[in-house]
């Protein structure tokens, strides 16, 4: 396949000697002022007390963390919340060797992992530290490393990272979503998933 030839454009005589503009820069700056939703406010307040909230599905009791106010399977609001422990395991993870914008504080390589809290039915993304990257594995037990009490704010950033708890690891077959599916009679378990 050969490429079609380019169309030749003949410029008017009066602009033929003008230096062509190669590019222009148009900086765009827009400011958005977000106000947290009611479910986010509850969750952020809990973080200030070193607590982690989950949203409970009114359909089958499945626990979502962080609570976004909705069970996405059924499109229904989750109004009830539940306190979750700050311990769990790694469902899966990535060792990243690239800097990310806005997080110049991170030492490379760093580990981002899907953290499955004990009692939660979905995972969420968190950083893992306090362990050599080569030792991180699926099923590894972790606990939250909180900021010092005098630095706590109403923010998810109170959890600096997740560090190994020293407990025995879960086998691969029980870690992350597989664990959910394996639990007999798991809430809302879908044999087709």
């Amino acid at each position: 396949m050969s490429e079609p030839s380019q169309v030749e454009i003949e410029l008017p005589a009066e602009i033929r000697d003008v230096e062509p503009v190669q590019s222009i820069r148009t900086p765009i700056r827009m400011t958005y002022d977000y106000i947290p939703s009611s479910s986010a406010i509850a969750s952020l307040n809990a973080y200030a007390e070193k607590r982690i909230l989950g949203g409970v599905s009114p359909i089958d009791g499945a626990v979502f963390v962080p609570p976004r106010g909705v069970d996405p399977r059924h499109g229904v609001a989750t109004t009830e919340t539940v306190d979750l422990p700050d311990t769990g395991h790694i469902g899966s993870f990535c060792v990243t060797r690239l800097p990310i914008p806005g997080r110049e504080d991170l030492e490379i390589p760093y580990v981002s992992a899907w953290i499955f809290l004990d009692g939660a039915d979905v995972g969420f993304l968190g950083l893992v530290s306090g362990v050599d990257t080569s030792e991180v594995h699926i099923g590894m037990r972790v606990k939250a490393l909180w900021k010092p009490d005098d630095e706590l704010g109403r923010t998810a950033e109170n959890i600096v990272s997740w560090i190994p708890s020293g407990e025995p690891s879960l086998p691969f077959e029980e870690a992350g979503v597989r664990g959910y599916r394996k639990r007999s009679g798991a809430k809302g378990s879908d044999p087709l998933a």
């Binding site: 106000i35 947290p36 939703s37 009611s38 406010i41 976004r68 106010g69 909705v70 229904v76 609001a77």
Partner: peptide, 13 residues
């Protein structure tokens, strides 16, 4: 101010 886009929509669905 205190509802996300999803939360605005849920009652309408």
């Amino acid at each position: 101010t205190d509802e996300t886009e999803v939360q605005i929509l849920l009652p309408i669905f």
